[in-house]
Amino acid sequence: MSIPPPPGPHQPEGPYQPPSPYSPYPQGPYGPQPQGPYGPQTPYGQPPYQPWAQGYSPYNRPAAVNGLSIAALVLGILCFLPGVGLVLGLVGLAQIRKRGERGKGMAIAGCVLSGIGLALWALALVTGGAAEFWKGFEDGARDGAGISLVKGECFDAPGGSLQGETYDVDKVPCAGKHDGEVFASFELAGGGPYPGDSSVRGRADDRCYGLRDSYAMDGWAVPDDVDVYYLTPTPDSWALGDREVTCVFGNTDEKAGLTGSLRNDETVLDADQVAYLKAAHVLNAALDTAPDAEYVEDDLPGHKAWARRVAAALEKQSGMLRGHDWPTGAEKPVTALAGDVDEARTEWAKAAKAADADVFYTHYDKGFKLIDPDRTVTARKALGLATTPPPSDDTGLEV
């Protein structure tokens, strides 16, 4: 809010000097007064501040323009807050009659335009158009706040880097070389202020690694130099309502990039391939829950609980492998694989009941060899899946 300056000191007596015919604004003690589109204005929409002047003016001053009529016309033209524009126009007409001010035409025009705008808003509310408009506005604001990418799209990042901050990417066909491929996206829960980089990245890391198998079901088909990256909200975009995390596959060597799509899910694979991979994921998920302690001696109860989870997963996997109607060429190798799974389940179940670390290791080693990825190659080849096992640690086997 600004406040007009106080009147200046009186000027010396002298004859009245009419304004220059070449001056676009009437003169006052503070210099030319700006002329608005509908007459002189101030920040309050009222006639300009009139300073005290010396002498008597022989000329009749024109009546001031009513400020509310100006505001009513502006709101009517912009169709912004039409109800307010209508009220201001009606009040302005009453003030004009009472004070003898000018602006009747503007007040009437503002009332008419605001009335039309009010009718259009009412129609939009009845038909649901207002809700669609607001949703579009929110989507536009969100697109402006973050990068809009959807599952299955490929893109190039500025400088080819998938690290640090970026505010734009270039979408490109997946068939050619590119920097990243989107495999999932999700919304972070929570309102209020930005929770901090570590919190946002931690949640993004957990979810994105958990969602990768739903897009690239055959992990063996993903090159060894491909890893998971993600785009997260920034503090600025969070303030604008951005909560989206975009999960991306990218090459650990920025100069190498990716070529071709890594997607292999139900939209790409056949029913037999999907059935096999779903059974494999049951075991992989259990193997990924190994305790943090590297040695069994450091956490025997934790390792025994892990062995129970693996044994339960092997039992479920065996049922899924035996319950599917496999094609002729794959039936024999899959049945043999199911036999290995059953034997492995027995050993893992014994490890879960081990009295000490030595007994645990004995059954763990036997059970571990029975789920060696190399034992699955024959079945995978019969089903047309990738046959080169990816490198993995002792608890990250993929079958």
Rank of each mutant, 00 (worst) to 15 (best):
C208H: 02
G210E: 09
D213F: 14
D213E: 14
A216Y: 01
D218R: 01
D218K: 02
A221G: 05
V222T: 05
D224L: 08
V226N: 01
D227C: 10
Y229E: 03
L231Q: 09
T232C: 10
D236N: 15
S237L: 05
W238M: 11
A239M: 06
L240I: 04
L240M: 12
D242C: 13
D242I: 13
R243I: 06
R243Y: 07
R243C: 07
R243E: 04
V245M: 09
C247Y: 07
C247S: 05
V248T: 07
F249N: 03
N251E: 02
D253R: 12
E254M: 15
K255E: 11
A256S: 15
T259K: 14
G260V: 03
G260I: 05
S261R: 07
L262S: 01
R263F: 12
V268R: 14
D270K: 04
A271G: 08
A271K: 13
D272H: 08
Q273I: 01
V274K: 08
A275M: 02
Y276V: 01
Y276K: 00
L277S: 00
A279S: 12
A279T: 03
A280D: 08
H281K: 14
V282S: 08
N284Y: 11
A286P: 04
A286K: 05
L287W: 01
L287V: 03
D288M: 10
T289K: 15
P291E: 02
P291S: 05
